Every structure is written in structure tokens, then in C-alpha cells.
Deep mutational scan, measured.
Amino acid sequence: KCNTATCATQRLANFLVHSSNNFGAILSSTNVGSNTY
């Protein structure tokens, strides 16, 4: 594990990016499902 501020910031940034991608995918699939019905 790294405990430097830079490494922690990069890890946090990566986490936010992945979370945003997952959130966007969920919204996209939900919109497609609602449009189908």
C-alpha cells in the first residue's frame, strides 16, 4: 500500500472514474428499458 498524498489522490480519482462509468451504464440501461416498454 502507498500512503503518499499523490498516490491516494490517484486512487481516489480512479475510483470516481469507475463509479461514474458504472453509474452512466446503469442510467443508459434504465433509459433503454423504459423506452422499450
Rank of each mutant, 00 (worst) to 15 (best):
K1V: 10
K1A: 13
K1I: 07
K1F: 11
K1H: 14
K1C: 15
K1D: 06
C2G: 01
C2T: 01
C2I: 00
C2F: 02
C2K: 10
C2Y: 03
C2S: 00
N3A: 08
N3V: 03
N3C: 15
N3Q: 04
N3R: 04
N3K: 03
T4F: 07
T4H: 14
T4C: 15
T4Y: 10
T4Q: 13
T4S: 13
T4K: 06
A5P: 08
A5R: 09
A5D: 13
A5I: 01
A5Q: 12
T6A: 11
C7Q: 03
C7K: 05
C7G: 02
C7P: 00
C7R: 00
C7W: 03
C7H: 05
C7A: 00
C7E: 00
A8E: 12
A8N: 13
A8K: 07
A8L: 02
A8T: 11
A8W: 03
A8F: 00
T9I: 04
T9H: 10
T9P: 10
T9W: 01
Q10F: 12
Q10I: 12
Q10K: 05
Q10W: 09
Q10M: 13
Q10R: 06
Q10H: 11
R11Q: 11
R11E: 01
R11P: 15
R11H: 08
R11C: 10
R11I: 15
L12D: 07
L12P: 15
L12F: 14
L12S: 14
L12A: 14
A13T: 13
A13W: 04
A13D: 03
A13K: 04
A13C: 09
A13V: 08
A13F: 07
N14C: 06
N14V: 11
N14M: 06
N14G: 05
F15P: 02
F15V: 14
F15I: 15
F15Q: 05
F15Y: 10
F15N: 08
F15M: 08
L16Q: 13
L16I: 15
L16C: 15
L16E: 13
L16A: 12
L16M: 14
L16K: 06
V17M: 07
V17S: 05
V17Q: 02
V17G: 01
V17C: 02
V17N: 00
V17R: 02
V17K: 00
V17H: 05
H18D: 01
H18R: 03
H18N: 10
H18L: 14
H18F: 15
H18Q: 09
S19W: 00
S19D: 04
S19V: 13
S19T: 14
S19K: 03
S19P: 01
S19C: 10
S19I: 09
S19Q: 15
S20V: 09
S20D: 07
S20M: 07
S20E: 12
S20L: 04
S20I: 06
S20Q: 14
N21R: 02
N21T: 05
N21D: 00
N21F: 05
N21Q: 07
N21M: 01
N21K: 03
N21V: 10
N22S: 03
N22C: 01
N22P: 02
N22A: 03
N22Y: 02
N22Q: 01
N22L: 01
F23Y: 14
F23A: 05
F23E: 06
F23W: 05
F23R: 01
G24L: 01
G24N: 10
A25R: 02
A25L: 13
A25F: 14
A25H: 09
A25P: 15
A25K: 01
A25D: 00
A25S: 11
A25Q: 14
A25W: 10
A25T: 15
A25N: 14
I26W: 03
I26S: 03
I26C: 02
I26Q: 05
I26A: 02
I26N: 03
I26F: 00
I26R: 02
L27S: 11
L27P: 02
L27E: 04
L27F: 15
L27C: 04
L27K: 05
L27D: 05
L27N: 09
L27Q: 09
S28M: 08
S28W: 03
S28Y: 12
S28P: 08
S28K: 06
S28N: 14
S29W: 09
S29P: 05
S29V: 15
S29D: 01
T30V: 12
T30I: 12
T30Q: 07
T30M: 05
T30D: 00
N31V: 04
N31R: 04
N31C: 04
N31E: 02
N31P: 01
N31G: 04
N31M: 04
N31Y: 00
V32T: 05
V32N: 08
V32C: 01
V32H: 07
V32S: 07
G33E: 10
G33L: 06
G33Y: 15
G33T: 14
G33P: 07
G33N: 13
S34T: 10
S34P: 11
S34E: 08
S34C: 08
S34A: 11
N35I: 10
N35G: 11
N35W: 04
N35H: 11
N35K: 10
T36K: 09
T36H: 12
Y37G: 08
Y37C: 10
Y37Q: 13
Y37W: 12
Y37T: 08
Y37I: 11
Y37M: 08
Y37N: 11
Y37E: 08
